[in-house]
Amino acid sequence: MPKSKPSIAPPAAHADVQSALRTLEAGSNGIAAISAALQGPLAPAFVAAVELIREAKGRAIITGLGKSGHVARKFAATLASTGTPAFFVHAAEAGHGDLGMITADDVIIALSWSGEQPELKTLINYAKRFAIPLIAMTSSATSSLGAAAGIVLELPKAREACPHNLAPTTSTLMQAAMGDALAIALLESRGFTALEFANFHPGGKLGAMLKHISDLMRSGDAVPLKPVGTVMSEALVEMSAKGLGCVVIVNASGHVAGIITDGDLRRKMRSDLLTVSVDEIMTPSPKTVRSDALASEALEILNSAKITTLVVTDAGKPVGILHMHDLLRAGVA
């Protein structure tokens, strides 16, 4: 008799997958608890924290230790990149000279789930001595940290995803979520724009997405242009010479009237193609983009319209042309 194959459990029933699902569920419950608290007792403290940080003459000093310290470092980076001057101070290093980084104009935001880390005492005393506002992000308003703080962002107590309820998992996710919530509330209350965001993110894909079209487009003689009434044989020469697979058609006033692409040629192939006017072949009112728009906007237009080229205009007149390849080279797409 042939040997029967061992039964294989469905992937979703695998113990590792079930463990991951329990972890995600625990994290989701933690985030849901914060959302509920923000619609109740946590709201006044949250509003007060946003106002205090926004109105501070100095910077937001984010501090913490252990896993809370790692979250605090990320929180500081998020604030700094979204218009709120901020930096991280390690709670343990503060008492060894780093207190000198903190001024009376600053606001200290201390992260500690228990609120009882002894290393925070040095920072607490320093804040009291120089009347530096202190915001606590903790799960216990009655802890040493909570009692010392002027504003307490008391996070709901939640079980860690760790089966022993020990390893910081749900708690650090909740701290990170609250940090993001504060950063975005500050961003929106300041009216922080995408252009300001670009100033802080000149590198990487984010920087590329925030470049202006004028930085990436082809302009001048590189733009394939022909007036209405041109015969197709001349338009094809222009298309070939510029190597962009298209030619922009302009009217007598210099405004964009249409565009002819390789696709138009395939769709409208005919025996007299070379002798007819571009007016018969062109696609009128092509997709355009302003030269001061962001590269991310151009990418969205290209993807949604399923095209590869955009005419760049200023008051309806072509000033450049942008190809998907230009975005690829810049690292946008």
Rank of each mutant, 00 (worst) to 15 (best):
residue 89 V to Y: 04
residue 89 V to I: 15
residue 89 V to H: 06
residue 90 H to A: 15
residue 90 H to T: 11
residue 91 A to T: 10
residue 91 A to S: 14
residue 91 A to L: 14
residue 91 A to W: 04
residue 91 A to G: 10
residue 91 A to V: 14
residue 91 A to E: 13
residue 91 A to R: 04
residue 92 A to Q: 13
residue 92 A to P: 05
residue 92 A to Y: 12
residue 93 E to Q: 07
residue 93 E to K: 04
residue 94 A to H: 09
residue 94 A to W: 04
residue 95 G to Q: 09
residue 95 G to N: 08
residue 95 G to W: 08
residue 95 G to F: 07
residue 96 H to A: 11
residue 96 H to D: 08
residue 96 H to T: 13
residue 97 G to H: 09
residue 98 D to Q: 13
residue 99 L to Q: 11
residue 99 L to M: 15
residue 100 G to H: 12
residue 100 G to I: 09
residue 101 M to R: 15
residue 101 M to N: 14
residue 101 M to E: 06
residue 102 I to H: 11
residue 102 I to E: 15
residue 103 T to V: 07
residue 104 A to S: 14
residue 105 D to P: 06
residue 105 D to C: 11
residue 106 D to F: 04
residue 107 V to H: 14
residue 107 V to I: 13
residue 107 V to P: 12
residue 108 I to K: 06
residue 109 I to K: 11
residue 109 I to L: 15
residue 109 I to Y: 10
residue 109 I to R: 10
residue 110 A to C: 09
residue 110 A to W: 03
residue 110 A to H: 03
residue 111 L to I: 15
residue 112 S to C: 07
residue 112 S to L: 05
residue 112 S to T: 04
residue 114 S to V: 01
residue 114 S to E: 10
residue 114 S to P: 10
residue 114 S to K: 05
residue 115 G to P: 01
residue 116 E to D: 03
residue 117 Q to F: 11
residue 117 Q to S: 15
residue 118 P to M: 08
residue 118 P to K: 10
residue 119 E to L: 07
residue 119 E to F: 06
residue 119 E to S: 10
residue 120 L to C: 12
residue 120 L to A: 08
residue 120 L to H: 03
residue 120 L to D: 05
residue 121 K to G: 12
residue 121 K to V: 14
residue 121 K to F: 09
residue 122 T to F: 13
residue 123 L to P: 07
residue 124 I to D: 09
residue 124 I to L: 07
residue 124 I to T: 08
residue 125 N to S: 15
residue 126 Y to I: 14
residue 126 Y to K: 09
residue 127 A to E: 07
residue 127 A to H: 04
residue 127 A to L: 07
residue 127 A to Y: 02
residue 128 K to Q: 14
residue 128 K to S: 14
residue 131 A to L: 06
residue 131 A to G: 10
residue 131 A to R: 14
residue 131 A to H: 11
residue 131 A to Q: 13
residue 131 A to K: 13
residue 132 I to N: 11
residue 132 I to L: 11
residue 132 I to A: 13
residue 134 L to F: 10
residue 136 A to R: 03
residue 136 A to L: 08
residue 136 A to I: 03
residue 137 M to G: 06
residue 137 M to D: 02
residue 138 T to L: 03
residue 140 S to V: 00
residue 141 A to F: 01
residue 141 A to G: 10
residue 141 A to N: 03
residue 143 S to D: 09
residue 144 S to K: 09
residue 144 S to R: 12
residue 144 S to I: 10
residue 144 S to F: 02
residue 144 S to W: 02
residue 145 L to F: 03
residue 145 L to H: 01
residue 145 L to C: 03
residue 145 L to V: 04
residue 145 L to K: 01
residue 146 G to K: 02
residue 146 G to S: 02
residue 146 G to A: 01
residue 147 A to N: 07
residue 148 A to I: 05
residue 148 A to L: 09
residue 149 A to Y: 00
residue 149 A to L: 02
residue 149 A to N: 04
residue 150 G to F: 04
residue 150 G to A: 09
residue 151 I to K: 03
residue 151 I to F: 09
residue 151 I to H: 05
residue 151 I to L: 11
residue 152 V to F: 01
residue 152 V to E: 01
residue 153 L to G: 02
residue 153 L to E: 08
residue 153 L to V: 02
residue 153 L to R: 02
residue 154 E to N: 01
residue 154 E to K: 00
residue 154 E to D: 02
residue 154 E to Y: 00
residue 154 E to P: 01
residue 155 L to V: 08
residue 156 P to T: 11
